[in-house]
Design a protein around this nucleic acid. Structure first.
Length: 642
DNA sequence: CGCTTTTGACCGGCGC
DNA sequence: GCGCCGGTCAAAAGCG
């Protein structure tokens, strides 16, 4: 064996861990490296046999784990009574030792990283397992419920079942495949938080409890949808929003097939929210790639694509509701194949939950009100108004002619439910379906009109007119349009101007409409606390909004403490007026209540100045908050912030 | 200069 | 087969 100087040892360690683990050849090298030469000439050989059989992570870990022993050896040697080295040589040794230790520290870090990686993988595995169980349960459920639906759509049901089974199959049959899917589907997915989130989302979705039975909608192809990604998404507008029926029908057959291959495109999640800004800030980065006027809606529809990752397949469509321009309909489609920024997790979590729901098929069928034939499904996610439709019926309410959804199962999250909004389609709808929509448990997660609801870059919802978008070029005008849209644009612009002019006049919902019914609040609270899944979703949203502890990504949300945390955080704000403590769930400003609004109650009254209130200033806004702060960070472009 | 938005053109699906 | 329509592309323009 050869002796090496400490310096060499250092090198050896470094090489070992980072580069030299290439194979058997290294074995010799490793051993040599551990032969230490002590100052006085005596040698100490650490009996470490690091022989990486293969350059795998495990090897790395094992190697790095060995490192400490080396240190020990060195220390021993240095302390040897025999070594009568001069003080100078000792100093040298010490220095070298230190450097070696530093090196080891690095190695440890690496080791740590690898461990984390491993953990992540394990978690993913567990998540998938859970999903599998959930799906299995759902399937069972479905089988039971199917009988009920029967009359109208035998085919559909059949199809549905197929879809579901297919989807499930993808999951259940192969967890691994699933993972792979995530990775490959459209893009390579890194085993990052994102994956986890996705999983979470799925699990959440599965957990969602809906009243009813499912309907066609259930089928969503989102099979995979990672919650996150899929989560995102809302559908747009009226035109599109509702059309599910058509889409479902058309899609099914294709969906089944497609879903497995390209699940991303299938399910769509549309979010209706009051928002004055051109787009809702959901934390993701988007790039606009097109704009068009859809039939039946004077407002142009903008097409965005996720730019966080070049290969990300996620797209979103943004359009104002023709009936109520204060409502912005955002439709998300596809699954992100990359980790999402914290700020984007809120929306993602929410949407993913919805998507999951769609997938799981656990929705309430409200066909009764509309047409039985209609395959509309709706659910009240503890306050979130969700509907899954085939198209037909919803069209009437939301988007008269939209074709957006044509072939996509869509789930709509209505964050606008608010009695005050005169034209809210939703309201119309709800009137038809009192039970669901007028439910006392409704949570308003809408932003107030003058206040824009947005997810700021920070990942918080913010609201305000100061949007990058607007700032840029008076963007309202941005919505210009393709050819024939000019007129419509004008309409839109007018609308925008109007809103802007009113900005700042927003009053807390309760001011305008009286305090919320206590019972309602209670119900809402109960609902939230009752459903862990919802809690998770909400938690994710809130956490990101509140800026909760950093780092907490939607993932952790999984937990169920949302309510607790949320409340805590909310309270933390003190800004809630006494009465609002609970109101946060319902408060709305100017009639649009946004969940977030509760947080902002004060805000609204105070004109929501950026720094002003505790709440907003901190982490700006919650996903559902309205903050005028929305500091369009100077550089932010619309797309960026969205 | 690089990135984003704008916007006319193009493509494919669907209904008649 | 034709036209409509949603969705996308890509050249040009705008912006920092």
């Amino acid at each position: 064996m050869e002796t090496a100087t400490l310096g060499n040892i250092r090198y050896g360690l470094g090489g070992l861990v980072k580069e030299d683990i290439k194979g058997d050849d290294e074995e010799a090298t490793c051993k040599q490296d551990f032969a230490l030469k002590i100052g006085n000439g005596s040698t100490y050989q650490e009996n470490v046999d690091i022989k990486p059989s293969s350059p795998t992570q495990n090897d790395l870990i094992s190697c790095s784990k060995q490192v400490p022993s080396i240190t020990t050896g060195m220390e021993r040697s240095s302390m040897e009574p025999d070594s009568m080295a001069s003080s100078s040589s000792r100093k040298e040794q010490d220095d070298q030792l230190e450097s070696v230790r530093a090196e080891m520290g690095e190695v440890r870090e690496e080791n740590q990283r690898l461990k984390m990686y491993l953990d992540r993988v394990m978690k993913e595995y567990q998540t998938l397992q859970m999903q599998f169980h959930g799906i299995a349960q759902q399937e069972t459920k479905k089988s039971t419920t199917t009988t009920n639906h029967a009359s109208n759509n035998d085919h559909q049901e059949t199809d549905e079942a197929e879809l579901v089974s297919l989807t499930l199959g993808s999951f259940s049959s192969n967890l691994k495949k699933d993972i792979e899917k995530n990775k490959t589907c459209s893009d390579v997915k890194e085993p990052t938080d994102h994956d986890q989130q996705v999983k979470e989302g799925l699990s959440l979705g599965l957990d969602w409890k809906f009243e009813a039975s499912k309907t066609n909608a259930t089928e969503l192809p989102l099979s995979n949808p990672s919650p996150l990604s899929s989560s995102e998404e809302p559908k747009e507008e009226a035109g599109e929003t509702c059309p599910p029926s058509k889409s479902l029908k058309t899609t099914r057959s294709s969906d089944d097939e497609v879903s497995q291959q390209n699940p991303v495109k299938k399910a769509r999640v549309s979010v209706r929210a009051r928002c004055d800004t051109p787009t809702m800030h959901d934390g993701c980065q988007w790039r606009k790639y097109g704009q068009k006027i859809a039939k039946g809606n004077p407002c142009p529809r903008a097409y965005y694509r996720c730019t966080i990752a070049p290969s990300c397949p996620v797209r979103k469509q943004v359009q104002r509701c023709a009936d109520d321009m204060s409502i912005l309909i955002t439709t998300y489609e596809g699954t992100h194949n990359h980790p999402l920024p914290m700020s984007a997790t809120a929306m993602a979590s929410t949407t993913s939950a919805a998507a999951s729901m769609l997938l799981s098929g656990s929705t309430t069928s409200r066909s009764g009100g509309l047409n039985p034939s209609n395959t509309t499904t709706s659910a009240d996610l503890h306050g979130f108004n969700i509907y899954i439709s085939d198209n037909t019926k919803f069209k009437q309410f939301y988007l008269p002619n939209s074709s957006l959804t044509s072939s996509h199962p869509t789930i709509t999250l209505d964050l606008t439910s608010n009695p005050s909004s005169a034209s809210s389609l939703f309201n119309k709808f709800s009137s038809n379906y009192p039970p669901m929509y007028s439910s006392s448990t409704n949570l308003n997660f809408c932003s107030s009109d003058s206040n824009t609801m947005s997810w700021s870059n920070n990942g918080f919802l913010s609201y305000g007119s100061s949007q990058p978008y607007n700032n840029r070029n008076n963007q309202i005008g941005n919505l210009s349009s393709h050819g024939r849209q000019t007129r419509q644009n004008n309409l839109y612009q007018n609308y925008m101007h109007k809103n802007v002019s009113h900005a700042g006049l927003v009053l807390p919902h309760h001011h305008q409409q009286g305090l919320p019914d206590t019972s309602t609040l209670d119900a809402a609270t109960k609902a939230i606390t009752a459903d862990p899944s919802f809690q998770s979703a909400l938690a994710a949203a809130l956490s990101s909004i509140i800026g909760c502890g950093g780092g907490t990504q939607g993932n952790q949300v999984g937990g169920g403490d949302l309510s607790t945390n949320a409340v805590k955080k909310l309270k933390w704000g003190e800004q809630f007026s006494v009465n609002n403590t609970q109101t946060y769930m319902q408060t709305t400003s100017k009639g649009n209540g946004c969940a977030s609004s509760y947080l902002n109650d004060t805000t609204s009254s105070s004109n929501s100045q950026p720094g002003n209130s505790t709440f907003l200033s901190s982490p700006p806004s919650l996903p559902f908050s309205n903050s005028k702060n929305a500091s369009p960070s100077s550089g932010d472009r619309d797309q960026n912030t969205e």
